[in-house]
């Protein structure tokens, strides 16, 4: 349309550009169909469901915004939000605290750097559910690794059930998730580091900038886009966390690790309040979009301001 409007040439050109546009639409049609069928329509249907009292069996009943007003006084939902926020902050900080040094370490060309990269990245290719099961076994008090090892080394008097207390279970899960995810964040940060032209680094070095100064004033600002991507992926993943809590502790000990998605799952597929689960999902979707927009805004690049 824009082309046709600015080019005051009638006839052939206009026809050709129109045909051109149709062709373009044809090319993206398969992708559009996928997005439509597997994202847009389900979301719209979820919105529709969220206005109903929707049991698994029986007739849905329109109840307007009651599902949404119920959330405000739902203490279990509010504590799920609190826990998810806590988990997201801890895990994201832990991942970045480890991924950045790792990325700096594997960026430099040194002997065996490919081996290091592969080793750090290996856990990423393990599924989260598989990793959770593996660590459930590692943390098992009787037949696992950690407790029997600590006991064998004489560090604890008798086997300690790591998953029985909040501190032990939470630490185990955070360590597992960091082990599983840090390689991916490392690769993302690595691409950002490698995109920094080496003449800039050299110029800074000639100007007498120290290692920390170069990192603070050159590397970090030039990595804004990469950081934004890594941060959004990490935070989105943490906010949507479910598998590890479901598999490793069943939300325990004493329901202290029920994340928001876990609560939605319980409401929808354990209690069969599908309408309420749908409303919770919509709220979570809105919250995630808001979180991502906020991060993009915070990490926007200078020239875009």
């Amino acid at each position: 349309m824009t082309i046709a409007a600015v080019a005051p040439v009638a006839g052939a050109t206009r026809r050709r550009s129109k045909a051109h546009q149709w062709k373009g639409l044809l090319y993206i049609a398969p992708a559009m169909v996928l997005v439509l069928v597997f994202f847009v329509l389900p979301v719209l249907f979820t919105v529709w469901m969220s206005f109903h009292n929707w049991p698994l069996m029986g007739q849905p009943k329109w109840i307007g915004l009651r599902n949404y007003s119920r959330m405000l006084s739902d203490t279990r939902f509010l504590s799920a939000i609190g826990f998810t926020a806590f988990y997201t902050v801890i895990v994201t900080v832990a991942i970045f605290a480890l991924a950045f040094p790792l990325a700096l370490f594997v960026e430099r060309e040194r002997r065996g750097v490919g081996v290091y990269r592969s080793i750090f990245f290996l856990p990423v290719v393990v599924g989260l559910a598989t990793a959770s099961l593996l660590w459930t076994w590692l943390a098992n008090v009787d037949s696992g690794l950690f407790s029997p090892a600590l006991r064998a080394l004489g560090l604890t008097e008798h086997s300690i059930n790591l998953l029985a207390t909040f501190e032990g279970a939470f630490t185990t899960i955070v360590v597992m998730v960091v082990w599983k995810i840090v390689g991916f964040t490392m690769i993302l940060l690595l691409t950002g580091l490698q995109a920094i032209p080496s003449d800039l680094t050299e110029a800074a070095r000639i100007d007498g900038a120290g290692r920390w100064q170069r990192f603070r004033h050159l590397t970090l600002p030039l990595m804004r886009r990469t950081l934004a991507l890594a941060l959004i992926l990490s935070i989105t993943g943490s906010v949507l966390a479910f598998d590890q809590f479901y598999i490793m502790t069943s939300g325990g000990p004493q329901n202290s690790m029920i994340s928001v998605v876990y609560y939605i799952f319980n409401q929808s597929f354990v209690s069969f309040h599908l309408g309420y689960g749908a409303a919770l999902s919509i709220v979570l979707l809105i919250a995630l979009v808001a979180l991502s927009v906020a991060q993009l805004w915070l990490l926007r690049v200078e020239d875009e301001r």
Binding site: A164, S250, G252, N255, S271
Partner: peptide, 20 residues
């Protein structure tokens, strides 16, 4: 199911909290 049987029910939570 919601009150007693499910893994995150008040009953399941209670038994763990009360005993351990």
């Amino acid at each position: 199911n919601d009150l007693i049987n499910s893994a995150n029910s008040p009953w399941a939570t209670f038994t763990n909290a009360a005993i351990f």
